[in-house]
């Protein structure tokens, strides 16, 4: 598989900007694996985090083409820098009789929070990087996942430690 890149894009917080960004990806045949967007501390600016795949040349084009959009203020390929990534998932798992304790044990090991309980299910909140969430979901699958929803990846650069 081609390497994954986590790209942070600061944009003007005005209508239509998101469709300019996504339209660029679809129009030029670039991949979007996931996408997160929300306002920053400055309400005039939004920050988009895009997870994409592609070889070096494609990623270079993605970054240059994003820069070319008039509403794009800044683009950073976080994969090139020391950074932290997080995703979140909400999962409703079947939990009856003996499996109730087992599901809780998994939740505990991976530091998930139980956000809803019913006699037959637990709903868990899982946060972590892409791989961790994948791992938890595959463990829970054995118990029966009734519903699940995931965010895209959020990422931030680590501060210098010196």
């Amino acid at each position: 598989m081609e390497p994954r890149h986590t790209i942070s894009v600061w944009v003007d917080n005005t209508p239509g900007v998101l469709s300019r960004v996504t339209g660029l990806f679809s129009g030029r045949g670039f991949n979007i694996e996931s996408l997160c967007v929300a306002e920053t501390m400055d309400p005039a600016v939004s920050r988009i985090t895009i997870l994409s795949t592609g070889d070096e040349q494609i990623i270079e084009q993605i970054i240059k083409q994003l820069h070319k959009l008039i509403n794009v203020i800044k683009v950073v390929d976080l994969s090139e820098l020391d950074h932290v990534e997080r995703e979140m998932a909400l999962v409703t798992v079947k939990a009856e009789d003996k499996s109730r304790a087992e599901v809780l044990r998994i939740a505990d090991i991976f530091r998930c929070r139980v956000v809803d309980v019913s006699p037959h299910t637990y709903t868990l909140e899982i946060t972590g990087n892409h791989e961790k969430i994948g791992a938890v979901l595959s463990l829970l699958k054995n118990h029966g996942i009734l519903d699940e929803v995931r965010t895209g990846t959020l990422a931030i650069q680590r501060s210098k430690k010196d």
Binding site: Q57, E60, Q61, K64, Q65, H67, K68
Partner: peptide
């Protein structure tokens, strides 16, 4: 003048 023209098709 357009960085995206550079190394688009030919490195």
């Amino acid at each position: 003048i357009d960085p995206s023209s550079i190394s688009k098709n030919v490195s």
